[in-house]
């Protein structure tokens, strides 16, 4: 949709991201970096990790959507990328679930066996 608009002008290929959006995204990324550093110093318990990850996801989304043009691209590219992320989620999710099932026992056993020579 936006591609056709861009291509009307002098045979341009692809979409030209407006300068205002580029600067805005850059400023937002810098501010969010500052926010995530400051947020670490506040004790939120478990939430600290989730807040840091939320900020990282927002920053990543800004980069992907605007710096990487995905918002203006053909939907096929988004499909590929989101498809990849789905597999990452499956990978991490299942691995974490699996390790939570029995890993504590395994680690305990290893720790007992390696008591004298650990920390090398």
């Amino acid at each position: 949709m936006t591609n056709t608009h861009a291509q009307e002008h002098s045979g341009e290929v692809g979409h030209v991201v407006p300068m205002g959006i580029l600067v805005g995204v850059w400023l937002a990324l810098m501010v969010l970096t500052y926010v995530t550093v400051v947020a670490t110093k506040i004790d939120l318990g478990e939430l600290n990790l989730w807040l840091a990850m939320l900020i990282a996801v927002i920053k990543a989304s800004l980069v992907v959507l605007y710096f990487m043009h995905l918002r203006y691209d053909k939907p096929l590219n988004s499909l590929v990328f989101v498809g990849g992320l789905v597999f990452v989620a499956l990978f991490l999710g299942i691995a974490l679930t699996d390790s939570a099932e029995y890993q504590p026992d395994v680690i305990h056993q290893e720790a007992l066996e390696s008591l004298p020579t650990s920390n090398t």
Binding site: W26, V63, F67
Partner: peptide, 15 residues
Amino acid sequence: ICSSFTMAWAVRAAQ
């Protein structure tokens, strides 16, 4: 982040 910004801007400049 700054170099990502200049890169995105460079693409715009090329366009």
